[in-house]
Amino acid sequence: MDTKLAMHTKNLNFFYGDFQALFDVSLDFGANEVTALIGPSGCGKSTLLRCLNRMNDLIPETRSEGEIYFRDQPIHGQEVDPVEVRRQVGMVFQKPNPFPKTIYENIAWGARINGYRGDMDELVETSLKKCALWDEVKEKLKQNALGLSGGQQQRLCIARTIAVEPDVILMDEPTSALDPISTAKIEDLITELRKRYTIIIVTHNMQQAGRVSEKTAFFLNGVIIEAGLTSDIFFNPKEERTEAYISGRFG
């Protein structure tokens, strides 16, 4: 293994009631890499993403088998608190969902509840700067975050996630609700954030996966069909189905 692992799963099975959504998923996520999860709708890629920070615990009547490791520590153990997992493995959602509070409070709230002791103004400023949002909002930190455009809201959500200093950021189709210009900004941001964080991104946009990720995993019906370097997946797929999906013949 050439890179250090941020997270990996081993024979992960996941069930919504009687419906099995993931079958024996074993996948490695290298530290400081961007991994893209692709596949048609309903193939289980979002489910996997939500397993990685135990978000699925919140849905009743779900269960999982197998192991998920965060830096070689299992995150499903009895002694592991999902709250701690979610702080270290942050999440950005498909639809921008800032809190209906001020821009400042959106960043400060997560830090405050996690017991941040530093200078809050500074944290807000650096978090917004890392997301290239500072110049756009520095005059209106006390205004409601819902007044921002969709793209700005999504960058604010990323800023709020990195303010609690996670190691891994999960992104669930973060640009599917945004226009091309906002999408480009988010993609630039992902490239920038890669230096510091491990990013796992679910996307329906093949070009996006190609642009931002080093590794790609292709899912079909809850099974990993193929995983590896993005360049290999896109240009030398071993599987017929991978090639068919990427070239747009189905999905």
């Binding site: 978000m55 709250v83 959602f93 969902n97 800032p98 809190f99 209906p100 996630t161």
Partner: peptide
């Protein structure tokens, strides 16, 4: 989505209820 964004930041159930669910 409001609950999820709160949990996603490492909030406990009570923090989510008190700071987001009840005000909303």
């Amino acid at each position: 989505s409001l609950r999820e964004s709160s949990y996603g930041l490492g909030a406990t159930k009570w923090q989510t209820i008190w700071h987001h669910v009840l005000p909303a």
